[in-house]
Simulated assay, not measured.
Amino acid sequence: MKQSQLIKGVLEGCVLATISQGEVYGYQLIQALRQHGFDSLVGGTLYPLLAKLEKNGAVTSVIKPSPDGPNRKYYTLTSAGLTALHAFEQQWTQLKHHTDQILAEVQSND
């Protein structure tokens, strides 16, 4: 299985978690995620996800002037986004636990 397939499954939760730390614009978000191992993340993946999160009410955005060029769109988490983040955390914890159990079983049989 390609790592990109696994990443797509968790990217939304990681985006919500990163935005929950404070207002961020798209390029900052890409850089933050890359610093945490999402090395292959590109705008073509992130920006449609941000648009979906905004449409679903998980994030809001505001356009602000940039000191370095064109205006930037800053994203913040809404209460619905915080609820979605908590749901992701619970689902991730359960999935990780089950996966760890299966992998531990396989390793003990080696």
Rank of each mutant, 00 (worst) to 15 (best):
G26R: 13
S79T: 12
A51R: 15
N71C: 10
L16K: 01
C14G: 02
I63E: 15
A58R: 07
L29P: 00
L82C: 03
P65G: 07
T45R: 15
K73A: 03
H36I: 05
G81P: 00
H36L: 08
N71D: 14
L29Q: 03
V24K: 11
V15G: 00
S61F: 08
V59T: 03
P67V: 11
L46T: 04
Q31T: 10
Q21W: 14
G37K: 00
T78I: 06
R72S: 04
G57F: 08
I63Q: 12
Q28D: 11
L41R: 02
A80K: 08
G43P: 09
Q31G: 06
N56K: 15
P48C: 13
N56E: 15
L33I: 08
V59H: 00
P65W: 08
S20E: 14
P70T: 11
I30M: 14
T60E: 15
A80C: 10
I63A: 08
A80M: 09
K64N: 05
A32F: 10
Q31H: 12
S61N: 04
G37R: 01
A58L: 11
T76R: 12
G22N: 11
A51F: 12
T76A: 14
A80Y: 09
S40D: 11
K52N: 15
V10T: 10
V10H: 05
Q28W: 03
N71V: 03
R34A: 04
A58I: 02
C14Q: 09
P48N: 13
T78S: 03
E23W: 13
L82R: 09
K52P: 13
N71K: 14
L53A: 06
I19W: 07
K55V: 09
E54G: 05
Y74M: 02
E54N: 14
F38M: 04
G57N: 07
G69N: 03
A80N: 11
L77A: 02
L53R: 04
A51K: 15
L46H: 06
Q31I: 05
L11T: 01
K64W: 05
P67Y: 12
G13A: 00
F38R: 00
E23I: 06
Q35I: 00
L41A: 04
Q28T: 02
L33C: 06
N56F: 09
G13T: 01
E54I: 08
K55I: 10
E54F: 05
I63Y: 09
L16E: 01
G57S: 10
A80H: 07
G57Q: 08
L53C: 12
T78W: 02
A51S: 15
L50W: 10
S61T: 07
Q31C: 07
E23F: 11
S66T: 10
D39V: 02
D39Y: 07
H36G: 07
V10A: 02
L11G: 00
S79I: 09
G44W: 08
P65K: 10
H36K: 13
V15T: 04
V24N: 01
A80W: 05
T78H: 07
L49M: 15
T60L: 15
R72I: 03
G57H: 11
